[in-house]
Design a protein around this nucleic acid. Structure first.
Length: 634
RNA sequence: GGGCCCAUAGCUUAGCGGAUCAAAGCGUCAGCCUUCGGAGCUGAAGAUCGUGGGUUCGAAUCCCACUGGGCCCGCCA
């Protein structure tokens, strides 16, 4: 039998039954339900009485009592709902727990990896743009936050059946490229090095060149000349710029792959110009009178967006799209790119395959071929840190003038706060400061590479893995340690609220115990250990078994997972998955210490082994959504 | 000057209009390996949820003001 994951899962059934019961008494379009946090208050509850009481100026407590007795009359013997009680104006529903538990366990055993999957996004195409690091350095811990968030969003939205395309927009034209080229052509830095090239560019060339500017300001004129030549997209320097950008990108993509983040398409910023997307965009803006060419003042000769059109920033300065020398700013290209994403341009890119494994990856390329599957999405999500809010607000304002609220809503600036360094972490890099937090700076070399952090963490983890697994071979030890390091990093960067700065401190941020990714994986490994040992036990039916309170809580938490996925997808909050994992792990670990599974008497043994099996499955599903690796052993 | 964000135990955070909801991790203290893996578990101590107003039957949660901290406002990206 092919099991359809759109079956009404247990909580849905419970809600539906409760709605039926209430619906026969009151006429109400939407009845709000919540899952009570305290077991005493049942398995489902509604605050509808507070709303009705206000409307009819009655006492909510009495109203609830009246409804309670009306509902009780309707309950049948084999009802999914066993009892109903009114407490303080709430109406609490109590499930027939045996039916409820059986239903939850069966749902998970049948659906397996699809448990929690939904059709929210069916038929809708969403573009998720993330990472977007300048191709002049290796990804640091701040970029990693972006990558983790973007990748988790992609995983979650795919899981609820959006047609997801993951993009990485790479700026191969900006002034940072001129710095590298200057370093290589004028300062004799190498193009071929034995270390990772992205890291070499960021750690050595970029930092050295910026120091050299201070000693020798004449070089800045040379830099300016180079920027203009690269921007023209003609000649040797433009070619060299692309070559270097490409090599750096390769290193960055390796880091992303290691973390488990894969893209569908690389959009080269220079191709916005090459494929002539910009002119058409500017024409459109001109026809709407949003932009204008300045004839006098500071911005004489520039084409600007007047600030009066930028919602929330009316008091600020106008924003330049085209400089007086005719070159375009980053924003101008980003507007054109936004147009392409939402299908507002007639111009198209050509594409070529960059690689096929582990996931087919395309990139824009003048010598490529057209491919209609990219662009023109229903929703475009750009994962970009909060410092760029103003530029993103400008794009949103422009979209508003073109297509009103409907169009504007389709463009989402997914913003998050930066990763900064703790005072200790800054000191570790040789910066003795008194501030509590220090912002990273590529120019000063004040940052931690994501790869370096992972390597250091892996090393720390490996000593424990070796100790606990003396008989495993080197490759296994290496793989396991690497996956644990990545799980620790991803959990640490995904879980915090997007609006909060993460103050990075190696030992604090990347814990191996307590509230950590390692703890989550460890808990999963525990479930696997039990399942492995119990593989030959013939499972009996658990009819008549009276579950302990921890088991009831676990079953309810498992039943909640589809709802957690839905909320996480609708609100674009991967955090909810991380929090859910933590909750489920805590419950399981407490349970694990207290109750034997394999050594329990029947029917407890069968019930518990099934319970552990479904806990393990749900942990795996949730872990996959935020990129933690479910390991068999560790 | 204009805009955005943050403020909850010593530290890091969760809770974001509801009922035993002030929660967890770290740290401190006291326990648990004859027990399915102790990267775990149990317990204790520790918070008038920055301050002051307001809205509400109900506010850590919403609104306003203030204080303290961070970010943005460039012919950079």
């Amino acid at each position: 039998m092919i099991y359809n994951y759109n079956v009404e899962l247990t909580y849905e059934k419970l809600k539906q039954r409760a709605s039926e019961l209430l619906g026969s008494i009151i006429k109400e379009e939407e009845i709000p339900f919540e899952i009570p946090l305290i077991d005493e208050f049942g398995d489902l509850s509604t605050t509808i009485c507070f709303k009705l009481a206000k409307r009819y100026s009655k006492n909510p407590v009495e109203l609830a009592k009246e409804l309670e007795s009306e509902i009780r009359k309707q309950l049948k013997d084999d009802d999914l709902i066993k009892d109903v009680r009114a407490v303080n104006g709430y109406i609490n529903f109590y499930s027939n727990f045996e039916i409820f538990a059986r239903s939850v366990i069966d749902d998970i055993l049948n659906l397996k990896n699809n448990y929690g999957k939904q059709d929210i996004g069916k038929g809708k195409k969403v573009l998720i743009e993330h990472t977007n690091a300048n191709p002049n350095k290796a990804l640091h811990i701040g970029h990693a936050r972006n990558t983790c968030l973007g990748d988790s969003l992609a995983r979650i939205l795919s899981f609820v059946n959006y047609d997801v395309q993951v993009l990485n927009y790479v700026d191969d034209t900006g002034s940072q490229m001129a710095d590298l080229i200057l370093g290589i052509t004028k300062m004799k830095f190498q193009k071929e090095v034995s270390t990772k090239f992205d890291k070499y560019c960021g750690d050595v060339i970029y930092v050295s060149v910026n120091k050299e500017y201070e000693k020798n300001p004449e070089l800045l004129k040379e830099k300016q000349r180079m920027i203009e030549e690269i921007d023209s997209q003609k000649g040797e320097l433009a070619r060299l710029s692309k070559e270097i950008a490409n090599k750096v990108l390769e290193g960055q993509l390796q880091t992303c792959s290691r973390i488990g983040a894969y893209f569908d398409l690389i959009n080269w910023e220079s191709d916005i110009i090459k494929f002539d997307l910009l002119n058409e965009t500017l024409e459109k803006l001109k026809s709407l009178n949003i932009i204008k060419k300045e004839e006098e003042g500071n911005y004489k000769g520039c084409i600007v967006v007047k600030s009066e059109y930028i919602k929330g920033h009316e008091q600020e300065t106008d924003k330049i799209l085209i400089r007086s020398d005719g070159t375009s700013t980053y924003l101008a290209k980003d507007i054109a790119y936004a147009f392409w994403k939402l299908g507002l341009t007639s111009k198209k890119f050509k594409y070529k395959v960059r690689w096929k494994e582990p996931k087919l990856l395309y990139e824009t390329d003048v010598n490529g071929e057209y491919n209609d599957k990219f662009g023109s999405a229903d929703i475009a999500i750009s994962v970009i840190d909060a410092r760029q809010s103003r530029l993103q607000d400008i794009i949103k304002s422009i979209l508003y003038y073109i297509g009103g609220e409907d169009l504007q809503k389709r463009y989402i600036h997914y913003k998050y706060e930066v990763v900064a360094l703790s005072n200790q972490a800054a000191k570790a890099l040789g910066y003795n400061v008194k501030e509590k937090i220090v912002h990273m700076s590529s120019r000063k070399g004040l940052y931690f590479d994501a790869d370096d952090i992972l390597d250091k963490l892996k090393e720390k983890i490996m000593s424990v893995v070796v100790k606990n697994n003396p008989n495993e071979d080197k490759d296994w030890i290496d793989y396991t340690s690497d996956r644990l390091a990545i799980s620790a990093l991803r959990y640490a960067l995904t879980k915090p609220d997007n609006n909060k700065i993460i103050v990075f401190d190696f030992d604090e941020t990347l814990r191996l115990d307590g509230d950590s990714g390692v703890y989550i994986v460890y808990t999963y490994v525990r479930t696997r250990g039990i399942i492995r040992k119990g593989i030959n036990i013939l499972l009996r039916d658990f009819k008549g078994y009276t579950p302990v309170s921890e088991e009831i809580k676990l079953i309810k938490t498992l039943a909640k997972f589809p709802e957690v996925v839905r909320t996480s997808a609708n609100l674009l909050q991967p955090q909810f998955i991380a929090l859910y994992l933590r909750e489920l792990c805590d419950l399981f670990n407490s349970y694990y210490e207290k109750y034997p599974v394999l050594n329990a008497d029947e029917p407890a043994r069968s019930f518990r082994l099934k319970l552990v099996t479904v806990i393990s499955q749900v942990l795996e599903n949730a872990m996959n959504l935020i990129g933690l690796t479910p390991l068999e052993k560790m």
